[in-house]
Structures are given as C-alpha cells and as structure tokens.
Design a protein around this nucleic acid. Structure first.
Lengths: 152, 152
DNA sequence: CCACAATTCCCCACTTTTCCCCACTTATAG
DNA sequence: CTATAAGTGGGGAAAAGTGGGGAATTGTGG
C-alpha cells in the first residue's frame, strides 16, 4: 500500500501540522503514529513511518565512509532525522530547524510519495511546479531507458 | 475493453462530476467504483480505475530516485494522485487543487482514452483542439520510430 | 540548587469541508 | 406522449481541520 495524493495543510503558530485524516489509520497500523522527518536535497521535508526510515538509515550507513558524497548524504539525512509522534488529533510538531530549512510558512503542501511523504512550502511548491512541467516536457536526451518506455 | 468517446460534463458548485452512465457498469466491475485522478503535463486531469493506476504507479516507483526527471515525474503524477469513490449517483468529488490545476469551470469535457479518461476544461479543450490539428499537420521529421510505422 | 523562560503536550471549542441522501430537471426510448 | 433513466442541485449530518488556553516539561542562567 502506497501513499499518494496532494494535500493543502497549514502549519500553525506553534509549528504543528495535521496529518490528513485519510492517512492516519494506515499510519497507526504501520508504525503506531511514530514518524521520522528529515530534509531533502531540494529543500523540502521528508516524512517516513519509523520502520521505513530505519531501512533507509541502514542503507545510508552502509555507504562507503570515505566517499565524500556519501558522507554529505549521511549528514544531511541522518543528521536532520527527528522522530515525531502523532498526538490525539493526528498532529505532529515540526521542529523549528526543519521548518526553517524548508522555508515553511503558514500554508504548506503535503504529498504522498509511495512509502514516504514530502512537505513543501506552498509558494516554493507553486514556483517549482511550473519549472517541472517544462522540464518534463522538454526532458529529452538524458532520459533513462526506463522513462522512454513509460506509457501512462 | 477500452474506454472511448467524448462527453460533455458539468462540474457543480461543490466540485462534483458525474461519470457518464455508459461507463459506470464497467467501472463497478473493474474496480468497484474506485478511481484515481491525477494531473497530466498539459494541464488536464487523468482518471484511472484503481488497479490500472497501481500498475502505472509501480512503474514510476521503480524509477531511480537519484534521477532528476524521474523525481519530477513522481512528484507530479504520484504526488497529485487522489483516490476517488463514486457515490450512489455515480459522481465523484474532484479535489479543489486538481480542479484548479486543470482550470476546470462549470463546463468540462471527459474523453475515454483506452484504459483511462482525460478531463479538460471546455474552453481549454476547444483552444487546444485547433493547435493540435495544426501541430499534427506540421509534425514531420522528428517522429519516433514507432510513429513512423503507424498505420491508421 | 533554584528560579525563570521557553517549548512541548494535552485538551476543548469553533469553523470548514465532505459525505449521504432526497428531489427536481432534462434527456432517451418505446 | 409517456415512462424510465440519466443528470443536476442542494439540505443537513458528520467528520476533518484549525486555533488557542493552560498544565507539564525541559533547558538555561544565576
């Protein structure tokens, strides 16, 4: 079972964000509401159910420590990973550092991405959206074979 | 069995849209009325029966996470994919975000496209229609191999 | 070790959206 | 022209989203 879909969410003055109701039941099943939030390369936040995160973390730790890229990834992802618990209303408190990192203001976007979620500041999301559409359109040349064959 | 045909539909004040009756029986068979809508590159919406969508989603998820194009596609398609259930009257509620994305107003067009449907704002559809005819006319030279061999 | 401040947590109350149902209008078929 | 089905609109109950008060906890500085 995969997470999908886009949601308008609001981050209140205390930095809290409500997980949309449609995901809650599943989250309670998978991980009892225990989530891990961390940062992503393109300045959004990633939210994993705890067990899923542990798999990712193991993979990251297995990377060769001498490789610079690997070390950077480890610092970025593992370094910022914070465990969150959903409260009785299905909300989580996003740490101030991570909110700043993603430039989160009041209005934000949460999207399901398979085993994880991404959280974006609404403005950033809207701006990026147009770029992506253009990039996907023009996306020629360096497409992996798998993409060329994709039929939707 | 393929979906085909063009339909005039209306989106009411609450954002609901009735699936044309001729498709309903088949939809109930295939997926019990469980549909998934998502966005398309050229600002229309795509509607899949849930099982069909899951195939697409699996393909998207299998793409390499480090590839930029792949990530963008995942964000656009999986990110916007929302599950819908038909109500007793055969209607579905289109999420506000997706209506905005496609610029849907009251009058819209739904067309069958094989395993999926496309939903267009009526105005956008009419305008695009003209362009396409022109583009297909002029569309010479850069046809992919598969298209060169197409016999209609 | 204590006092103070800031943050986090838990609870309640209000607003908005969604969902379910019924009723009316329009189209299709006999 | 009538009967049946499809399409459309809207009322109202229920659920989700949102905001804030105040207690508890943590951390900091004296």
């Amino acid at each position: 079972m995969q997470f999908r879909g886009i949601n308008n969410i609001s981050v209140d003055a205390k930095g809290r964000m409500a997980m949309p109701a449609r995901y809650r039941e599943r989250l309670l099943e998978i991980c009892g509401g225990r989530l891990v939030v961390t940062v992503d390369r393109d300045h959004c936040l990633l939210v994993y159910p705890l067990p899923e995160w542990e798999i990712i973390e193991a993979k990251l730790n297995a990377l060769p420590s001498l490789n610079l890229q690997a070390r950077l990834l480890q610092r970025l992802l593992i370094g910022h990973a914070t465990e969150l618990d959903m409260d009785a209303q299905g909300r989580v408190l996003l740490p101030a550092m991570l909110r700043d990192f993603a430039g989160l203001k009041k209005k934000a976007i949460l999207i399901g991405q398979g085993k994880k979620f991404e959280i974006w500041d609404e403005e950033t999301w809207n701006e990026s959206q147009e770029e992506w559409l253009a990039a996907v359109q023009a996306g020629d040349g360096d497409l992996p074979a798998a993409l060329e064959e994709l039929s939707l």
